[in-house]
Design a protein around this nucleic acid. Structure first.
Lengths: 168, 168
DNA sequence: ATTGGGAATCTCAACGTTGAGATAGAATCA
DNA sequence: TGATTCTATCTCAACGTTGAGATTCCCAAT
């Protein structure tokens, strides 16, 4: 039972034994990084199979789970998706031409632009969620419920410590 | 004690209660994704502070931990860094002009190109590792040793299940 | 009412990655 | 030897993101 990170740590132990006391964070952080790479490739494949670019599905689900009227400001997406403003503008531009979302200028504050799910976007999202969660279940199926809880609890502590505490 | 993923799951529970049974993988996978984003920003900051691009530090440490003669084929980097061939060519090109690595054509198989740490690259890497691990420790300090072991064990299972078992 | 600071979004050039195709060499077999 | 197939790397156009700056607008202070 060993993965690539075990091999990496083994190499360091052989080459720089003086670092043995300091290498413990690699056990967690390198695995987070590598698992994120695996995950992003899986999600990309899933998205493309359903006619979406990676990132577009994020926009759809973020709007869907926010509840009626399925509209959020562009700024809300910056934090939700953890990307920069140019990326959001780019994504919304493309999704607007696909008819999945539409920009709505708010009357009260004309600086803000709300991105709203169209009927087509809403239907597509609801239709995809079951497949998406089935795909997630497949990716995570190696974990028992206890494993899940332990990993989730640890990562929650890390995320809280880094201020990732809100999606607003 | 709640993070952004707790909020996301709360939203789904309110909007699509029918998905309650299927949402458990989000607890783990969404946190992996978000923590990877946090981590990559931290590592990028660290790299730039030390005059490197993100990814270049990966190349240096991968070579360093492989042991003398600190040389690996370009193909080995594809798996180690989980990126495509164009990215490796690009990285090595830049690091070669910086004098950190050099390309060496092998006599026995003239297709392969070994990337080798220069003396300058080796010295820089050894000099940076302590800072790098201190930075990692800062990022992971919210975790107790027990937390670390639990998260690492769970992620190891996931990575093994996805074939991430070797860096060769 | 005007000014100035701040906020929300968009613009756009620079950058790194992707991924299919090109190139060159090795390996197998007739 | 020649032909075929496989392997390793590089090339390069397309693509998405970054991030600083521009733009537009809100709001508080005077």
């Amino acid at each position: 039972m060993s993965d690539a990170v075990d091999a990496i740590i083994g190499q360091w132990t052989a080459e720089r034994p003086d670092l043995a006391e300091a290498i413990w964070p690699v056990e967690v952080l390198a695995r987070v990084q590598r698992m994120a790479m695996v995950l992003s490739k899986e999600v990309k494949t899933f998205s493309v199979e359903h006619g979406l670019e990676m990132g577009e599905f994020d926009v759809l689900t973020t709007l869907r789970r926010s509840g009626p009227p399925y509209a959020l400001t562009a700024g809300a997406f910056l934090k939700a998706a953890m990307v920069t403003s140019g990326a959001i503008t780019n994504r919304i531009d493309k999704m607007e031409t696909k008819g999945l979302v539409e920009r709505v200028r708010d009357g009260s504050d004309r600086r803000t632009v709300k991105i709203r799910l169209t009927d087509k976007g809403l239907a597509l999202t609801d239709q995809l969620m079951d497949d998406h969660l089935a795909n997630y279940a497949r990716i995570a199926k190696a974990l028992t419920p206890e494993d899940c809880a332990q990993v989730a609890d640890g990562l929650r502590k890390l995320l809280e410590a880094h201020g990732d505490t809100s999606i607003t």
